[in-house]
Design a protein around this nucleic acid. Structure first.
Length: 591
RNA sequence: GGCCCCGUAGCUCAGUGGAUGAGAGCAACCGCCUUCUAAGCGGUAGGUCGUUGGUUCGAGUCCAACCGGGGUCGCCA
């Protein structure tokens, strides 16, 4: 149960009964009503803004917001689990719960390993999260990694919060870059057959990772491809190389515990089925809505591209949806632009029943957001929504000095290199311990430091420390049943220390943290929340140094120890749950 | 020039759909290991929340303009 949602619901019902008396209008917008912890804890456990947000509506029957607040507070205070509800300032309602209300939270955690998990939000359709979508032309680099980790954590968060989530990877296997890949692989094929290829020509991919692809091509096809013309071997080599690249990318993703439900091929959109293809269909769909026309675009402001040529082209009226200019759908050679296939791709998402789409992109695609959001609005007649999450760049440093090249391969450092050096947990946590739209400095030296400077270890250590306490307690109280079910009958009223109370209150906030983070599409909030939880545990643990009576394990006081183990068990559960959303392991011990 | 992101303590950053103390960590200084893991904790000091206006009962938060940093700008993906 979510305490904050519970009180929110109670205030709604109080307001509704006032409305039923005719003293408030019907149909108030309760989404404006917030129930949250007050900034200053001395004000109580929860604070509500009800009287102020509905001040206008209340004018007719209440002389001021305070008066409405007093009535709401009185109704709230009538409940058994509310200790007091006071009106503060211009009309805030500060609510203090009785201790038993928080004991109930602990029992909820002990009873439900998925404490905090949400119900499927009302009226929400299926959610599609598209992330990674790195071109299948080489290994993933660190920037891809950030988007990958972000998207994966967001999908985990949404699923935990109760949304129906599908995770998708869009394979850009249709553009000119995969032809370049094919030619690069073909060169490696000739190399594998013993030809001296010299330096890799400008414009082809030089990386060593294509060598095995060439060797496998030689193994599979022998010398037969050499006799074919490029138009013959290219499609074959292209698909072969794309498959190899995707295998490599999938392996990298798997090593970071990142998974997808669907790998969607861009090429599949342009395949002719019957008389037409998916891209053409999508364009015709928009044309039928009057959103496609033939016209000329003004040249871009500022520096004019050298090869600018004024010509008439097929344009989408994205300006009708807030974009700056209309966007072209056909290249001068008659093929589709990337945008055109992307429209078809998002149409496919619509056709498959997704009403909320989240695309995770790199910051360099920022200029692309408006046109894509416009296209989704146009295709769905405004019924579906696209939220593009831009992940800013990752600056890789070691001891503060920028690292650009991989020592081993001499190329841009790959995600694989980083994970190998610092591990999955550190990589994931650091990438999530920052808002997605803020640039990230990733220090390879710092993340493997085992100290409080390193938030990964700090949080994992808190979990390990909690588990250790439970083991110590079991050793001290040999015969006592300390499983969660037995602990729920512990005498929780014995938990009286301010540190214990603080921990309980933090645990009680988990469900609303989940709801808020999921609604905002911001998994970093969970990273900060588990960090706060870890900090509170370390802090309270250390109180036991000077005040031995506060230590969790006390052989003399079995009831108290059981109550404290109940608290620590709840705490480690929430920590583990939060870490799981981030995709970071929660170790039993860290020796 | 257009558009997007960022600007909060010396440094790195939190701060939910506005509201009743501007916060954390690092760095600095002072403390705490015969202790359930000191891989930790407590304390002191440090900020006109980039600037100027606006909306409001109330703005770090919303709006506008400007300044500074980054990104991006038909036929690349």
């Amino acid at each position: 149960m979510n305490l904050f949602a519970d009180i929110h619901a109670r205030i709604v019902s109080i307001l509704e009964s006032i409305a039923a008396d005719g003293r408030l209008p019907q149909g108030l917008d309760f989404s404006r009503l917030t129930v949250e912890p007050p900034r200053d804890p001395s004000h109580g456990d929860l604070a509500a803004n009800a009287a102020m947000v509905f001040a206008k509506e209340a004018k007719a029957h209440f002389s001021n917001p305070r008066q409405l607040a007093v009535e709401i507070a009185a109704a709230l205070a009538a409940a058994n689990d509310v200790d007091r509800a006071e009106v503060a300032g211009p009309g805030f309602i500060n609510i203090t719960m009785v201790p038993q209300a928080f004991h109930k939270v602990l029992r909820d955690v002990l009873a439900d390993p998925r404490f905090g998990a949400g119900e499927r939000p009302q009226g929400e359709g299926r959610v599609n999260v598209e992330y990674v979508s790195a071109n299948p032309t080489g290994p993933m680099h660190v920037g891809h990694g950030r988007g990958a980790v972000f998207g994966d954590a967001l999908a985990r968060l949404l699923a935990f919060a109760g949304y129906d989530v599908a995770r998708e990877y869009y394979i850009n296997d249709a553009g000119a870059q995969v032809d370049v890949l094919a030619r690069s692989a073909f060169l490696r094929y000739r190399e594998a057959l013993g030809e001296a290829i010299g330096d890799i020509p400008e414009g082809l991919y030089p990386g060593d990772y294509l060598k095995p692809v060439g060797e496998n091509l030689a193994k599979t096809h022998g010398r037969s491809l050499l006799e074919q013309s490029e138009s013959q071997w290219l499609p074959l080599v292209r698909q072969f190389a794309i498959n190899a690249m995707m295998d490599m990318i999938r392996a990298d993703l798997a090593s970071m515990n990142i998974r997808h439900d669907v790998f969607f091929s861009e090429r599949s959109l342009t395949v002719n089925t019957g008389n037409t293809d998916a891209v053409r269909k999508a364009i015709e769909d928009l044309r039928a809505k009057g959103l496609i026309y033939e016209g000329r675009l003004p040249p871009p402001k500022g520096q004019l591209p050298d090869d600018w040529e004024d010509r008439e082209q097929t344009l989408f009226r994205s300006t009708q949806f807030g974009d700056d200019v209309d966007r072209p759908l056909m290249k001068s050679d008659g093929s589709y632009t990337y945008f055109a296939s992307d429209i078809a791709y998002h149409k496919s998402k619509l056709d498959r029943g997704f009403t909320t789409m989240i695309d995770v992109w790199g910051a360099d695609h920022g200029g692309y957001v408006k046109r894509m959001a416009s296209a989704v609005k146009a295709l769905s007649d405004g019924k579906a929504h696209l939220d593009v999450k831009l992940c800013q760049m990752v600056k890789l440093v070691r001891e503060g000095v920028e690292v650009k090249m991989s020592k081993r391969s001499g190329e841009f450092i790959t995600l694989h290199d980083v994970v190998e050096e610092v591990g999955v947990d550190a990589t994931r946590f650091m990438m999530l311990f920052r808002k997605n739209d803020a640039a990230l400095e990733f220090d390879l030296a710092k993340v493997i430091e085992q100290s409080k400077d390193n938030p990964v270890f700090y949080v994992q250590y808190a979990h390990a420390r909690g588990r250790s306490v439970i083991r110590q307690a079991q050793a001290a109280l040999k015969d006592a049943p300390l499983d969660p079910a037995s602990l729920s009958s512990a005498r929780l009223e014995l938990l009286e220390d301010s540190g214990e109370i603080e921990l309980i209150k933090l645990i009680a906030q988990y469900p609303r943290q989940i709801d808020a983070a999921a609604a905002a599409h911001e998994p970093h909030r969970i990273a900060f929340y588990v960090h706060e939880l870890a900090s509170a545990l370390h802090s309270h643990w250390n109180k036991g140094k000077d005040q031995p009576q506060l230590r969790f394990v006390n052989e003399e006081k079995r009831d108290l120890t059981c109550a404290r183990v109940a608290l620590v068990t709840s705490l480690t559960r929430v920590l583990a749950s939060g870490l799981d959303i981030l995709g970071v392991s929660a170790p039993e011990e860290m020796r």
